[in-house]
């Protein structure tokens, strides 16, 4: 029985630097295997859709424009993503990858969370086609 057992820690801390991290002023380097934003490499994609089928959060949509010509667009909802990497595990072609350097994903504008991957012309055609659908909730709010 002692009156106090932690006095050494307490006194020692007076001369030690604080353990508090000064984020965002000082940034710690992210570990190599950190799961950050998902990236899609369209070259190997076969449009099988396993990634979106297995996604527990409905964060992925593979939009097939033309299967033969390999025209796919990936619609990725960052706000829904839970960073479980099941899509990376499910993809047999290895098209998907979670980048460890893009992890500060907070944003004020909800539109930044809708990310389209693919050929620019294809994305433009999809956005044109879906403008009517998406305009409606925006107008309501």
């Amino acid at each position: 029985m002692k009156l106090t057992t932690m006095w050494k820690d307490a006194l020692g801390s007076l001369i030690k630097p604080a353990a508090t991290q000064r984020y965002p002023f000082v940034r710690r380097e992210a570990p190599e295997h950190l799961r950050g934003q998902l990236h899609w490499d369209p070259s190997a994609c076969t449009g099988c859709g396993l990634c979106s089928k297995d996604c527990p959060a409905d964060a992925l949509e593979v939009i097939v424009l033309d299967k033969k010509a390999k025209r796919f667009v990936m619609h990725y909802h960052v706000d829904r993503c839970t960073f479980c990497a099941q899509c990376v595990a499910s993809c047999r072609q290895g098209c998907l990858d979670m980048e460890s350097d893009e992890w500060e994903l907070a944003a004020l504008d909800p539109r930044t969370f809708d990310i389209y991957y693919g050929n620019e012309a294809d994305i433009a055609s999809i956005l044109d086609g879906s403008t009517e659908e998406e305009a409606e909730p925006a107008a309501a709010g």
């Binding site: 820690d9 307490a10 006194l11 801390s13």
Partner: peptide
């Protein structure tokens, strides 16, 4: 107190 607890305070 913060310094005793190894915080910035």
């Amino acid at each position: 107190i913060a310094r005793f607890q190894n915080r910035i305070g």
